[in-house]
Amino acid sequence: MSEAAILEVVNKNFGDHLILGEEGGVIGDSHSDYLWCIDPLDGTTNFAHGYPSFAVSVGVLFRGRPAAAAVVEFVGGPMAWNTRTFSATAGGGAFCNGQRIHASQTDTVERSLLVTGFGYEHDDAWSTNIELFKEFTDVSRGVRRLGAAAVDMCHVALGIVEAYWEYRLKPWDMVLVFWMVEVAGGTVTCMDGNKFCVFDRSVLVSNGVLHSKLLERIAPPTEKLISKGFDFSPWFKPENYHTYF
């Protein structure tokens, strides 16, 4: 129902654009310069339990470049629900409820609060991240696993956590939120340190100040996964869609 409501608005106003939705897949003109990415419910398990870490995310690319993104985060909890809306536009900055936001300036891992996530598949990437979770728990102020990628990245942009990383994400999981972090002054790469695009399968977002220090610990085990044959090539890109990648 959430995706249907979003599609109704997008199709009414941009009927000739290409759309990638978590539920409906790819629809529209594959030769369009525009690609909408829709996650109608990020943090499904949290939503089902009434746990306050889930969101609805919408973003649009123009020839592969971020143009605009919005995330509505549901906060509070039973008997105290509320929302806050994150948004960003090309050249326009990053905002939360209309107020400009910026990533934190914390410059040491020891004073940082970090966030990660785990997919449903308990494979080598999952095991590697368990080890990273343990390692960073030992050296930072703590590592949280909240269960909604878009929310986690928005929290980096808001400056209330210093970094977030995860393997095995899908394009709609990120829905250009990674770019919102960059607009807010942060840094985004793949977990091996390579340049990131929305179709990649691992992501490290940080306040920027800490990025190289985090990569010192995250990149080596990620490179080891790649050497073992774990595929980190772009997960998906619609056929014929024009990008600069």
Rank of each mutant, 00 (worst) to 15 (best):
F54R: 00
S227M: 02
A125H: 07
H155Q: 14
G77C: 05
Y241Q: 08
E216V: 12
G147R: 01
R111K: 15
H31K: 15
R141M: 09
G92Y: 02
F178V: 02
G76I: 01
R65P: 00
D124K: 12
W172A: 01
F199K: 05
N194T: 15
S127I: 12
L61F: 12
V10S: 09
G159Y: 06
G15Y: 05
E110F: 08
S206T: 08
V181M: 04
I38P: 03
L158D: 06
S212R: 13
I226D: 03
N82S: 15
A163E: 05
D123S: 12
Y34C: 03
W165T: 01
S30C: 12
A125T: 14
A67E: 15
L215I: 07
K195N: 07
K134G: 03
V75N: 06
R65C: 10
G92F: 00
A150P: 04
F74K: 12
G64M: 08
A70N: 09
E22L: 04
A48E: 14
M180I: 14
E216P: 00
E23C: 04
V209N: 02
S32Y: 00
S32F: 04
F236G: 04
R141D: 04
N194C: 11
E182W: 07
G119E: 03
N46V: 10
T89V: 14
R63N: 10
P66N: 10
A125S: 15
G43F: 03
I130Y: 11
R84W: 03
G159Q: 09
L113C: 05
N240C: 10
T128D: 12
W172C: 02
S227T: 02
L204H: 07
L41T: 09
T85Q: 11
E216Q: 14
H49V: 02
H31F: 14
W172G: 03
E3L: 06
R65W: 00
G91L: 03
D138W: 06
P78M: 11
F245I: 13
S212P: 01
F136A: 07
S233Q: 13
K224F: 11
D124I: 10
R201H: 08
D231Y: 08
L225T: 04
S227I: 01
L215Q: 14
E8L: 04
R144L: 15
A5I: 08
S87I: 04
G15I: 00
I6F: 02
W179F: 05
T128Q: 13
L35R: 04
K228T: 03
W81R: 08
F118L: 07
C96K: 13
G117R: 00
G24N: 14
F47C: 07
L35E: 05
S227P: 00
V203Y: 05
E73I: 00
I218D: 10
K237Q: 13
N207F: 01
N194S: 15
R65T: 13
L113Q: 07
D231S: 10
A67M: 14
L214K: 01
A157L: 03
D42V: 02
N194M: 11
H211N: 03
Y241L: 11
K224I: 09
E135N: 09
G50F: 09
E110L: 05
